[in-house]
Design a protein around this nucleic acid. Structure first.
Length: 421
RNA sequence: GUGGGUGUAGCUCAGUUGGUAAGAGCGCCGGGUUGUGGCCCCGGAGGUCGAGGGUUCGAAUCCCUUCACUCACCCCA
């Protein structure tokens, strides 16, 4: 049995790499316009970092992390998300002392040991955006706006924005109590999962898809109605700023996000085209996280985009290669092949995209291959031409060809291709 | 971890109540008169029918087991 890749950990083959490059370049361009800077963080971190940031009782930490001891016995984890690392780096390098460094983005692979399905893999890729030390609602609105601008730039269809507020510890604590009281009263009517959730993470019950639980939840107290004055004002501010940017959104009091560190504004960009995994991007504010990780008490906000999900939503033709090979060099005979081999290298060094056939195939076979490679031109080099010190340049689209002297062939070709490009 | 679906050529898939059906299309390779691509025509290579076991005179087909893939639950991007 040949060795296969690990379940849920996939190769990205050349025929789709164009889509990835498109997504990455559009992200870089747009985020840069919003004055975000790229930061690159490690894939491996101490396990403790994620345990403390994401939350000990979350599914991610409890059962989805790739965790193992290194050779010194230190517990390490392949990052299941990026925010914790960016915050860690911010603290570690004391970037709060550099006011120019507050808005970051990063992209790369994340790892979670879940059962793979459409739009969800064990190694998956995210683009992450984080803003530190700014808690004005304008910043939340701008971050959300940037997410939508990005999705729009990639022509992702039918995106809907859902927003919610998770409040702050001040309003969440009393709310949790009243919710707990309510749920206790109806606990025997909850589904098995929700019975468990009631004790571990009651907010998650709002997410349950079982009908009976949905009915119970309708009468349950909702966090949005229990926000403290400050959080209420803050959420209103976010909505006002979104309105001023003409961003359409749905307030979804039942939207719950899985990481413990979220506070106040949370949001998701939803698509109907992905099956069960409908969130293309999501995020929110995490005001207590930096302090909890031992840094200064600075607020944060940001989002993550699922790149695989994005790729699935991209138009088939998006990111298709536009730059075909300029030239294919077809050689006939050993002498010609030798000459062609060095000529090919010379042309490449002068900036042309050139391919040749290394086997001694028939001209017909070489022409066929040139056609497959989408070469716009073929340079035919045979003994006849060699004897004359020339080569035939064939235009594949026009099906015409002419003889060119070998002496000035490089500059001749360069001139032609430069003109055409 | 729990369900459902699917495993036949590189890809997408046919394959009759078990009985010379190991097949198609695309792709790949070659040929169609000296050294010229696409379109067309002709030919070729390529599969222990996911694996193991069982039933049978006979299994791609029926039964069991197992593995893989996939979708969904859970959870999340």
């Amino acid at each position: 049995m040949a060795i296969k890749a690990i379940k849920g950990i996939n190769d990205i083959l050349p025929d789709v790499v164009g889509k990835w490059q498109l997504v990455e370049s559009v992200a870089r361009r747009i985020f840069s316009n919003f004055n975000f800077q790229e930061i690159r963080i490690p894939i491996l971190e101490k396990t403790e970092l994620f345990a403390r940031s994401i939350g000990e009782t979350t599914d991610i930490v409890e059962k989805e992390m790739y965790t193992f001891p290194d050779r010194n016995g230190q517990l390490l984890t392949l990052r299941p998300e990026a925010t914790a690392s960016v915050v860690r780096a911010f603290i570690e390098h004391k970037l709060h002392l550099q006011p120019a460094m507050r808005k970051f983005y990063t992209m790369g692979p994340m790892f979670r040991h879940e059962r793979p399905q459409k739009g969800r893999y064990r190694q998956f890729h995210q683009i992450n955006v984080e803003v530190f030390a700014m808690d004005d609602p304008m910043v939340d609105a701008e971050v959300i706006y940037m997410l939508l601008v990005f999705l729009e730039a990639l022509k992702i269809p039918d995106i809907k924005l859902h927003i919610n507020s998770m409040g702050c510890p001040d309003c969440r604590l009393p709310f949790r109590q009243s919710l707990a009281d309510y749920l206790e009263g109806v606990s025997d009517k909850l589904c098995a999962d929700c019975k468990r959730r009631r004790l571990t993470n009651p907010l998650r019950i709002f997410d349950c898809k079982v009908d009976s639980c949905g009915k119970l939840v309708e009468n349950a107290p909702v966090l949005l109605d229990h926000l403290c004055h400050e959080c209420e004002k803050n959420f209103q501010g976010v909505r006002d700023h979104l309105d001023s940017l003409a961003v359409a959104y749905t307030i979804d009091p039942f939207m719950v996000r899985g990481l413990d560190y979220y506070t106040r504004t949370t949001f998701e960009a939803i698509t109907p085209h992905l099956g069960a995994q409908d969130a293309v991007g999501g995020g929110g504010r995490y005001d207590g996280l930096m302090k909890a990780l031992g840094g200064p008490d600075l607020p944060g906000t940001g989002f993550a985009i699922g790149m695989e999900r994005l790729i699935l939503l991209l138009d088939d033709k998006a990111g298709a290669a536009t730059d075909s090979h300029n030239l294919f060099v077809a050689c006939l005979g050993e002498e010609a092949k030798k000459k062609g081999f060095s000529l090919v290298q010379e042309l490449r060094l002068s900036g042309l995209s050139v391919e040749m056939d290394y086997e001694s195939k028939s001209l017909k076979a070489q022409m066929r291959r040139a056609d497959k490679l989408d070469a716009t031109h073929v340079l035919i080099l045979g003994d006849d031409e060699l004897a004359k010190g020339a080569a035939l340049l064939r235009d594949m689209d026009a099906s015409t060809q002419e003889e060119i002297s070998l002496k000035k062939i490089v500059e001749e070709l360069l001139q032609r291709f430069k003109l055409e490009m």
